[in-house]
Design a protein around this nucleic acid. Structure first.
Lengths: 222, 222
DNA sequence: ACCGTAAACTTTACATCGTCAAGATTAGCG
DNA sequence: CGCTAATCTTGACGATGTAAAGTTTACGGT
């Protein structure tokens, strides 16, 4: 609805990125999101600038306001996209792993960590920035989808719906916390020992730690 | 060395906080750190402002530069203090817990989480802000002390020095990740189920999850 | 007791930021 | 073909971090 012209231009101009022949951009919303991601990657969450995004997209500094309420609005939209990519990286990992629930869970966790390491600032934006608005439909939906996916994984493993069984919900929280903690600590360079390992060994170690969170023989209350 | 006058004034004036009679403040460094913590608590990491700190301390906006290189310098100094408080909250918890290594480890973890929940923005500053400089002596030292403390806890539990025994080091990373993940997720309101629980049950649940990271009978490699 | 140096603090200035308001341009529909 | 509304630009404002230059005061050597 908003991008017919952009499509035409992109087809016509063989993908060179930064034209801007006409007054109207054509698909600025998209362009801004791409620019925002690049800015985020280069400058980090704390160095992120709305004007920088506008410049990178080749428009004036006030243009973004017509597509996003404000800077936080842009970041929120970006976070929603990030969240979707986040989930699909987990699913991609799982697709390449054995079907056993335990292996699936570990694979999902590795995807979680992969995403964090490959998109550090996007990860930070999504998980620990106060600039995103989770009341936003897109973002809220993406977040819920991601949570549901984890819950489903535990349901598969335990044969109980975590929403009904507190013990299964404990498993959910435990894997999530462990995986998230690994991701966050790796990201901030606090687990250099792990990062130094060759990929295969590192993933073995990560898998081991993640699966500790869901013991095969749940102990009684400690 | 720099605070004789400040001490005199504080004694003389019965602790009322915001005088500023003389041109020289007397203990501005201290005052700025206090102001910075308050600003952090009120506005959060992303809303933190150097000028705000200066105003709160009752000095001109350029005064902080004489005590801290720049805004990040102030935040770094604050982070160092935060880190020390962080560690002592863990130790406080441990002092009130049974001496058994496992109980000590759990207590330390609960202290970790306590700190995060009671000082959310300080926690964020310390663990996920790019504005702190860990090359800084104070901060680096505080961080190392905290890590050493965790390592010692695992050494106590396993009877092996993690720096020498990779399996023990795995335990270190596992508890750390789990505890940190819990803290971070709780902080961002993503584990509301847990937060809703009455204190005692919540701590029981947290303890259970934390201790999963260090199984009593370490399984062979999964 | 005094004086000069340096530290502590203020003032001024500047570039950059986010956002608002008003003007220019163009797309799309009647 | 012309109107309206969406899209984008320009200009302006207050706030921010930091650098430079000026002011005040503490303090050590005499």
């Amino acid at each position: 609805m908003a991008c017919t012209k952009a499509i035409l231009r992109e087809k016509g101009l063989a993908g060179a990125d930064e034209q801007k022949t006409s007054y109207h951009h054509g698909d600025l919303r998209h362009a801004l999101l791409k620019a925002a991601e690049a800015e985020l990657r280069e400058k980090g969450v704390e160095g992120f600038t709305l004007r920088g995004c506008a410049k990178r997209a080749g428009v004036s500094h006030a243009a973004p306001a017509h597509h996003f309420r404000d800077a936080n609005g842009l970041l929120t939209a970006l976070a929603a996209i990030g969240f979707e990519r986040f989930l699909s990286m987990q699913k991609a990992r799982q697709a390449a792993a054995p079907a056993a629930p335990r292996a699936q869970l570990a694979a999902s966790g590795l995807g979680y960590i992969d995403f964090a390491l490959e998109n550090p600032d996007l990860f930070r934006l999504v998980f620990t920035s106060s600039r995103t608005d989770f009341e936003d439909m897109q973002l809220g939906e993406a977040a819920r989808a991601s949570f549901d996916h984890l819950v489903a994984g535990i349901a598969e493993l335990r044969g109980e719906d975590p929403h009904a069984d507190p013990r299964a919900m404990s498993d959910v929280m435990a894997v999530w916390a462990t995986t998230h903690g690994l991701a966050d600590l790796l990201l901030s360079g606090r687990l250099k020992a792990l990062l130094a390992l060759p990929k295969e060994m590192r993933e073995k170690a990560l898998t081991d730690i993640i699966l500790r969170a869901v013991p095969e023989h749940p102990s009684g209350t400690v």
